[in-house]
Design a protein around this nucleic acid. Sequence first.
DNA 1: GGACCTAAATATAAGATCCAAATAAATTCG
DNA 2: CGAATTTATTTGGATCTTATATTTAGGTCC
Lengths: 391, 391
Amino acid sequence: MLRQINSDALLRFALQEQVFTAGEAMAVTGLTRATVLGVCDGLVAAGWLEEVDGSPAESGTHKGRPARRYQLRESAGVVVGLDAGETHFTTIVADLRGRELGTRRRNIDSHVLGRAGRGAGARELIDLTLRDIGRAPDDVLLTVVGVPAPIDANGMSPEGEFWQLMNSGFASHLHGMVVVENDANLAAVAEGAHEPSANQATLLTGERFGAGLIVDGRLLRGPRGGAGEMRFLDVLSASKLVPDEGGADGFGALARKWARSRIRSYSGDTVLRQLPEGEINAEDVFRAAREGDSFAADIIARLGARLARIAVVLSSLLDIERVVIAGGISRAIEPVLDHARSLLPGDSGLPLPALVASTLGAEVVVKGAIESALTRVRREPNAFLPRAARS
Amino acid sequence: MLRQINSDALLRFALQEQVFTAGEAMAVTGLTRATVLGVCDGLVAAGWLEEVDGSPAESGTHKGRPARRYQLRESAGVVVGLDAGETHFTTIVADLRGRELGTRRRNIDSHVLGRAGRGAGARELIDLTLRDIGRAPDDVLLTVVGVPAPIDANGMSPEGEFWQLMNSGFASHLHGMVVVENDANLAAVAEGAHEPSANQATLLTGERFGAGLIVDGRLLRGPRGGAGEMRFLDVLSASKLVPDEGGADGFGALARKWARSRIRSYSGDTVLRQLPEGEINAEDVFRAAREGDSFAADIIARLGARLARIAVVLSSLLDIERVVIAGGISRAIEPVLDHARSLLPGDSGLPLPALVASTLGAEVVVKGAIESALTRVRREPNAFLPRAARS
DNA sequence: GGACCTAAATATAAGATCCAAATAAATTCG
DNA sequence: CGAATTTATTTGGATCTTATATTTAGGTCC
């Protein structure tokens, strides 16, 4: 336990800087030099900081007594991000300044593994990633896990076989503190860190569909973790109130399903007929559309219309300024965005959201997990004891 | 300026209690008796508290030395709530414990008054209400004004003649600190205080339509104050993307408009034909429905369907647990709720929100304004200096 | 009424945190 | 080397808080 009250504020500052001097910390925290140095002493003793004396090179041509410079201790700890999807796991281990130290990816079959298997597999992959970079499980201050299921404030998911399988009780399998979060919410955190906007929605829409909503700078959750579910779309458009299964499908799944189900009744010509009907997938549709195939272009247009509806609802109901399409599909999504933009009425007086594709690719969720872990460590650093000093 | 650091926490406690002893404050704040008494001394000196010595009656049969008892000073100040609607103003003056001291209501014509007229009228009505209870304008610590317009974090509204007229620059007309807020948001605050639920939507739906959304215990606003706008409804149901004017209409306005526009083409019999077509209003429709008129019942059903759609969207997208219909119309709204409930699918596995009518009637907005004012004063009491002690 | 009990108020000492000012140290520049 | 400059360290004091002991204001019991 640290003695000084203001240690939190200073530690928060230290967690964002490479190296810093007492003078810089004084400017940020508003404390006196004496106090800052006192707190720094305490943080060094606790194992958070170390004094760095590489004065000559970068200090340049300063007059006066050189300042003591502090730095987050390299071995104070690391954070782990895990994207625990249905078909693959991705890990990233990062230091407390957010630098990526190691990463691994592995395909899995959740329905074969079961809950326990997912938990064990996660631990295994994390341990391997830690070994890659020469770190021990004890070094991990916090692990954030993204899963495709609603997550409430306690990390629990509603009933439902799939959701309970995805939210596999990681806390009991992994070392140290574990936080479980919805994958789309983590994607939103990643996008929010990458391009700060207090009001944006991040649609994670590959195979499944989920949205992370940031309103007034805050991630929405809901008592059952259900904020960001989009099943209402089919409800409204079909003017009935019972959602069908399509509501949970992402754009990738929809492109595949629509292509397979409509290709037979399509009267025109299409390159997709070269493939067996049961093997057409989303990438084929997007590729065909790029090559000018009109059957594929029609599917793109339907996706665009769907996105436009989502954008209107989010902008109207939540005053969302920016809608980001994230996930692996984001690389190919631009034609869908184009069509959606053309549908949005420019002259209605309504403020309309910008539609953009994520640049973080398939790694949004893990990156968001790391970002979320860092945010939590920064918010209350003293809740995470640093790895004790070693020789 | 108070000396003690912990005065805020103790003052917050004092603002919620009738009378309290040092021992009670110790339990709540976790401070020592010596500290609590020291802070109380300071608060008495500053004019916030007064010591009350009515020990005999209620102290009952306590052993030991009787405790000193403190109380919020009656004349420390009051808060003012103002519902500055389009057609009427309503004021409430309340003391710092939320007891209503005085209230007034006045019909106005905003389009005749203009911005300056609304501001002057508001000041006049507030001053009259203060005079009613023998208080001076200087006693007002904070005035919260509810207006039918989107309000951003700075109290400003987007461009638009109507919105700029409603948000009439009250800050420059009224005494002391003024906070302007959207009327539906204040209704949500009132409902939230009346029946706490961390996730509920309050639909203020008489003539105009607005929603106050509370998600994760927090009121949503949006960068332009646009959170809670519902214009998307017509967008989705009509499968087009440009909203028509109906989107901003409340249930009262819709009942009237639908009745007037459809009564001619209605083939059956209806009691509403006894009225001139241009004079049918919402109350007539609701009354006719209660009496079994099938034309009116059809309109009720359409309103119910609209509400059901809203409920599904709010529940799906924001995990809303409870939808409250507020405003003057809430007394008659039960049939609409009934029909909406019958439309919600009970077996879809979706968590569905409860639909309830507000019990606060036409006063929701003012009551929310008072509640909001009290919350703000409680959050940082020392930002509001108490009225200086008088003899 | 007086001895005794109890819970609160008060007094006193001490500890923690922080600042302001004075002093000491380390470096650059002339 | 000395002046200037910038930082570090020391010192004393102010503020806020706790802990402990003492006093006070009521009760109860005899």
